[in-house]
Amino acid sequence: MPADLPPADVLATGHHAPLPYEIRLPERPRTAIDLVVIHCTETPDLASARRFGERVLYGSGTGNSGHYYIDRDGSLHVYVAPERVAHHTRGYNERAVGIELVNTGRYPHWLDSRHQAMDEPYTPAQIQTLKALLASLREALPNLVYIAGHEDLDTATEPASDDPARRVFRKRDPGPLFPWPEVLAGSGLERIRAEP
């Protein structure tokens, strides 16, 4: 995305590629959205993230995905319109928009206790696009006031895949290398976390 692109234009330059089941996702008014949840794909690339998103996991014929995906080069991909409820954060989907940043995270050993480090930095291009997207969404969604990381809201643990006696966090994204101060500065959004 060009550095001088106004925030209002970021959605116009995005690649619109709706998931095959998008029309099956429940509709909602834009006024129902007050939260953005930041994720990382925990996959090696955008293509594999797309394949995960296309998987049908529910009786409704839908699966798990975010609304927006930002690749390492800063390109924006729209998989689900914000007027649809996507499955991306348990307990928050009806009120939230999900933004996925392509990043390996813990791939492919998500729940292995020996592989919980998330050490791939986010690219400057990704963060630039994310900030422009957040500004655009603030204009388009009148009640948008909150932001959270997936790890802030889904704090559940599961048995580790390598040792069921140990527990690991289900979700750790966007992880310790996500630049929260830079993203929050000037965003007009308040970071929230799950109630203990």
Rank of each mutant, 00 (worst) to 15 (best):
N93Q: 13
L19P: 06
M1G: 15
P164D: 05
A148P: 04
L130A: 09
Y79D: 13
V85D: 04
A148Q: 00
G188C: 07
Y69P: 10
A165C: 03
D73G: 10
I147R: 02
P164E: 06
L11Q: 04
I99D: 03
G59H: 08
D152K: 03
P7W: 04
G53M: 06
P174S: 06
D119H: 14
A117Q: 12
S48P: 01
A140D: 12
L130Q: 11
E100V: 13
E54I: 03
P176M: 06
K131T: 12
G74W: 05
L19N: 09
R30I: 04
W110H: 11
L184P: 05
L137R: 04
D73H: 09
P44T: 14
L141V: 05
P6N: 02
I38M: 14
D119I: 11
H16T: 08
R172K: 07
G66V: 06
T155W: 01
W180H: 08
L19E: 04
G74M: 10
K131G: 01
L76R: 08
W180N: 03
R114A: 15
D173S: 14
G59T: 07
A185T: 12
V145L: 06
A140M: 07
G175V: 11
P7A: 09
D34F: 09
G14V: 06
G66R: 13
S187C: 07
P159Q: 03
G105M: 05
F52W: 08
A32N: 10
P121L: 08
V183L: 03
L133C: 08
P44R: 12
G105P: 06
K131H: 02
F52P: 00
P121G: 08
P124A: 14
V78H: 07
A47R: 15
L57P: 02
G149F: 02
D162P: 04
G105S: 05
K131D: 01
Y122L: 10
S48R: 14
P159C: 07
G14D: 04
A135P: 02
A32L: 12
R95E: 02
R84T: 08
I33S: 00
Y58P: 01
N143Y: 00
